[in-house]
Design a protein around this nucleic acid. Structure first.
Lengths: 225, 225
DNA sequence: TTATAAATTTAAGCAATTTTTAAGCTTCCC
DNA sequence: GGGAAGCTTAAAAATTGCTTAAATTTATAA
C-alpha cells in the first residue's frame, strides 16, 4: 500500500512517515501543495494524507484538483482548524475524512484502515488451494477453469470453504445448507458430496473435500511450504 | 436515498428524521439494535446512522453483524463516547465514520454526503461489453446500433448493468425495478428478460444477460484478455 | 372525450434442470 | 466376518425458467 503525505512541517511529516512505514506502508512526502498535487496526479497512491495549511497550494485546493482530474483516491485531511465550517468545507471539497491535530497515531491508523478497507473488500472471494469461489458472481474457479455448479452444489461448497480447516458435521451441514432443523435420515449430503467431488475432480481439484468418518467433512487449506 | 436511523432516544431520532426528510432523504427509524439489524438486513439502505448505546443489541454489534452478512452499506456512528479506544474499536468493527454527540446538523449532513458520494461516483460508466446505456437520454447502444427499449425494459437493463458482475436476485430486481416490497409470485421478470434478450440478440449483443438458476441474473463485464 | 396504439401484466404449457429418494455396493473398523 | 458409515447410481419428483398469447392498463393522438 502506497501513501502520499502532503505536509510542510518536517517534524510531523517525518513522524508520520516513520510510524506508517513501521506498519508496512510505502510512504512518499511532499512539502508543499504544488509538488504534492504533482506527485498525486502522476503516481498511483492508495491514500493521500493532506494537511490543510500548506504553502504553494492549500490542502483544500489540492483536494479539489485531484477530484477534478477524475482521481478518486481516498483523501484524509489533517487539520488544526476544527470549526464547523472548515470541516464541512473540506468534506465537500472531496475529502473522505479528516482528523484534527493533535491526533493520536492509533486513531490515524484506524481511519486509514477504514479508507483502505473498501479496496480490500472488492476482492471478497473465498478460496482453498487453487479453488476459489465468488459468492457475488456465483462463480467457481479451479485455477483458470470455471466450474459450473447448481445452487445446492454451490451452497454446499461455499459452506465447506467458509469453514475450511474445520470439520463440518452432517447435522451442521443439513442445518445450514438445507435449512432442515430436525433429525432426518436422508442421504442427500452424500449424494451432493459425490456430485461436487466429481466436478472438482474433472477440473483438477482432486481430493479437496475429505471425509471424517462418523463426523462429517472437511476442506483443508494446503499448507504452503 | 434511503436512510435507516437506529437510535433509542425518540427526541434525537425524531429530530434527525425531520431534518433529513427536509433534505429529501427517505428515513426509517428503529428504536433498538435488534429491530434495527433486522431492518438493515432485509432492506436496501443507502446509509445507516447508528447510535452506540442502544438497547437489545449494541451499535457496535449491529455494525459487526451487518458486515458479517456481507453488506457494505456505509455506516455512520453516533456516539457520546469519544475516547480513543472507542473510536478505533468502532471503525475497526466496520463503521465508515463517526460523529460525536452533541453534533451540529450541518456536519452530519456533510459526513452523510461524503459517504453517499462514493455510491454515486462508483458506477457511472454504465456499460458492459459493447453495450452502453445513458440514463440521462434513455438511450441504449450496442456498438453503433441504437436499441429502442420501453421504460420497464430500460429500467431492468439499467439495474442489471449498474450491478454488473454481481448476481441480481429476483427479489432485489422486483424490489428495485418494480418497487414491489413483498413476496409475489409473478413471472413478470422472466417475461422482461425474454423481451430484453430478444432485442439485445437482434442488435448483436448475444448472451449478455446470464441466468443463475435458482438465484437470479447477472451481466458480466467480459474480461479483456 | 374517445379511439387507437403501446406497454405491461397475467396465466398457462412446456422443457430443462435440479433435487430427492431409494437401493445396492464398497470401505472401514471392531 | 459383520455391521455401520459412506459412496454411487439411476429413476422419480419437484422446481425453475422460458415462451407465448391473451388480458389489462397506460399513454397518445384525433
Amino acid at each position: 500500500m502506497r501513501l502520499l503525505i502532503i505536509e510542510d512541517e518536517p517534524g510531523i511529516a517525518g513522524f508520520l512517515k516513520d510510524g506508517l512505514e513501521e506498519e508496512y506502508f510505502a510512504v512518499d512526502i511532499a512539502y508543499d501543495g504544488k509538488s504534492g498535487l504533482d506527485l498525486a496526479l502522476t503516481n498511483e497512491y492508495d491514500l493521500l494524507i493532506v494537511d490543510w495549511m500548506i504553502p504553494a497550494l492549500s490542502g483544500i485546493e489540492v483536494c479539489r484538483q485531484v477530484r477534478k482530474a477524475g482521481n478518486s483516491v481516498p483523501i484524509l485531511f489533517l487539520t488544526a482548524k476544527d470549526t464547523l465550517e472548515d470541516v464541512v468545507f473540506g468534506l465537500d471539497a472531496g475529502a473522505n475524512d479528516y482528523i484534527k491535530k493533535p491526533f493520536e497515531f492509533e486513531e490515524l491508523l484506524a481511519r486509514i484502515r477504514v479508507q483502505l478497507r473498501a479496496k480490500n473488500k472488492a476482492d471478497n472471494s473465498l478460496s482453498a488451494g487453487s479453488l476459489s469461489i465468488n459468492p457475488a458472481t456465483h462463480q467457481v474457479f479451479a485455477g483458470l477453469n470455471e466450474i459450473t455448479l447448481t445452487p445446492k452444489e454451490f451452497a454446499l461448497l461455499e459452506y465447506l470453504i467458509r469453514n475450511k480447516d474445520r470439520v463440518c458435521t452432517r447435522s451442521r451441514i443439513i442445518e445450514h445448507v438445507w435449512d432442515i432443523h430436525f433429525d432426518s435420515d436422508t442421504s442427500v449430503i452424500d449424494v451432493y458430496i459425490t456430485f461436487l467431488r466429481r466436478k472438482l475432480e474433472a477440473a483438477g481439484c482432486g481430493n479437496l473435500i475429505q471425509t471424517i468418518r462418523g463426523v462429517g467433512y472437511i476442506v483443508r487449506q494446503p499448507s504452503m511450504v
